[in-house]
């Protein structure tokens, strides 16, 4: 037990060093931090739960939803019910999940105590995990190839107008993907904002915005051509709110196919080297 704890502690301090540009700083602070307790020392404590709730709403709710039931990021209420441990949750918060929007918590801003307090709050929301969703992932993969591959890459295959989805199963909850596909939610990742520009010659070009400053804009057009344009040479630059991705209503995608597609996407949790 002592050995396990020590190993975990070492892993954390290495991660902290990598996560922080000023590694000397981070190492020193990690070194003087107390060893991590096996269980949450703040669990069940009223003030900690109340503080943790406020911290959750500030730092976590944007992705995990105001009730922690998942939005851009996963539902957290079923974490413990599904066998998750305090130690595992602490690690995820402190180190983040590479390749997703879940960033590591900077130890200079987010103290260990803060993480424990947020976890104490989350435990009060803890619920029995929803029934395991079912669906035919093989059919989902077919649906994906027919509808999505032209813009989205999985395991190094597919288009690049939209984000790479090789890890989307770790990054997005099923509900979030459902909402995006059906068009009831419209979140757009930075670098994928839809834009239409019109040149002085009258040419209309649609694509996604990669970068922009006061005098120029850089886009990937719908044919995946990367190109920069001087605003002096454009008569219009319109960044739109509606994603380039079409809405897949029931007319385009049946409930059953959608369910299968979600089953397939939920299983995408990192590059599958075997399929390359």
């Amino acid at each position: 037990m002592r050995r396990t704890l020590w190993v975990t502690g070492a892993a954390v301090s290495i991660t902290l060093g990598l996560a922080c540009a000023t590694s000397a700083f981070a190492q020193d602070r990690a070194a003087r931090a107390d060893p991590r307790p096996a269980n949450n020392p703040y669990e069940g404590k009223a003030e900690a739960i109340s503080n943790g709730g406020a911290m959750f709403r500030t730092r976590c709710a944007g992705c995990h939803g105001p009730d922690a039931r998942g939005y851009l990021g996963p539902d957290l209420t079923g974490f413990w019910g599904a066998g998750g441990t305090d130690d595992r949750m602490f690690d995820i918060v402190r180190k983040g999940i590479p390749g997703t929007e879940m960033i590591a918590a900077d130890p200079t801003r987010v103290l260990d105590r803060d993480i424990w307090q947020v976890m104490a709050y989350l435990r009060t929301l803890s619920a029995v995990p929803a029934t395991t969703p079912s669906g035919d992932a093989a059919n989902g993969a077919q649906v994906f190839r027919a509808n999505c591959t032209s813009c989205h890459m999985v395991n190094a295959r597919g288009g690049q107008l939209g984000p790479d989805l090789s890890r989307i199963g770790s990054a997005r909850p099923r509900a979030g993907l459902h909402a995006k596909l059906r068009g009831t939610a419209n979140f757009i990742r930075p670098g994928y904002e839809p834009v239409t520009i019109v040149t002085r010659a009258g040419e209309r070009i649609r694509g996604v915005r990669k970068n922009e400053d006061e005098f120029s804009i850089q886009i990937m057009d719908m044919r995946e051509r990367l190109q920069g344009y001087l605003k002096d040479n454009l008569t219009e630059v319109r960044v739109e709110k509606q994603s380039v991705m079409p809405v897949y209503g029931p007319d385009r995608l049946s409930d059953r196919d959608l369910n299968d597609l979600l089953q397939y996407l939920a299983g995408l949790r990192g590059a599958d080297t075997a399929s390359r």
Binding site: E47, S50, N51, A54, M55, R57, T58, R59, R109, L111
Partner: peptide, 22 residues
């Protein structure tokens, strides 16, 4: 911004903000 506050105890050298902002 949306300003949140919570109770925080002072410890030398630790962040002492008592809240955060979205």
């Amino acid at each position: 911004g949306v300003f949140f506050s919570w109770k925080e105890d002072y410890a030398p050298g630790d962040a002492y903000r008592g809240g955060a902002v979205q």
